[in-house]
């Protein structure tokens, strides 16, 4: 751990995460996830899987899916490409840590600060989600994860618990816009 004096800001440019409770829905900014992207090198799929199995405990997820493990999650983001996530406190330089594990079987890229993450929790999220994105959210089951468009923003939606617990990843620079969209829609359906 480094002990530099620079203080981080969340994507919404605050010292602490913003939490909004609207009706039965809670929208929380989550700055605590380290993210690294993995892109498998040509012909190294099996080698990558072999190196990752001890860390993940299972196979990398397939298209449209995410896998949740103890303190690590893996999301399929494209052909031969995944996001791995873990608490930032544990992995201040997650890409470097992953590179150490996967060696030359995959290209690893720092993505931690590329995204703003909003955890959205409530008893019924469908009315909110159907206002903001074109996915058939009622058909999303636990562990489904996909990129989609939210008001022109390329986002990533992870369904942790169908209809009740999702995470929305959006481009970090547009955190304020994405937050506005979520809060406006939540108020509209509250």
């Amino acid at each position: 751990m480094s002990d530099h004096p620079l203080a981080p800001l969340t994507a919404l440019a605050r010292d602490t995460p913003v939490v909004e409770k609207i009706g039965g829905i809670t929208i929380t900014e989550n700055p605590d996830l380290a993210i690294a992207s993995l892109a498998v090198r040509h012909g190294r799929e099996l080698d990558l899987q072999t190196l990752l199995t001890p860390v993940l405990g299972e196979d990398l997820p397939g298209p449209g899916r995410a896998a949740f493990l103890e303190d690590t999650a893996a999301i399929w983001t494209g052909i031969g490409q995944w996001f791995l996530m873990s608490p930032v406190a544990k992995h201040p330089d997650y890409a470097w840590d992953m590179k150490y594990i996967v060696k030359d079987t995959a290209s690893v890229t720092e993505q931690t600060d590329g995204w703003v993450i909003f955890d959205v929790i409530g008893d019924s999220l469908s009315p909110l989600l159907e206002r903001i994105c074109n996915l058939n959210v009622n058909a999303m089951s636990d562990g489904d994860a996909t990129r989609c468009l939210i008001e022109h923003l390329g986002c990533l939606i992870i369904c942790r618990e169908s209809g009740r617990n999702i995470s929305i990843f959006g481009p970090r620079s547009s955190a304020a816009s994405l937050h506005h969209i979520l809060v406006t829609a939540a108020k509209s359906v509250a």
């Binding site: 992207s37 090198r41 290209s107 993505q111 931690t112 600060d113 970090r172």
Partner: peptide, 13 residues
């Protein structure tokens, strides 16, 4: 070609 691309525009200030 063995090459992988990903945008990192937002990840770095």
């Amino acid at each position: 070609l063995d090459v992988q691309l990903i945008s990192t525009t937002e990840a770095w200030a």
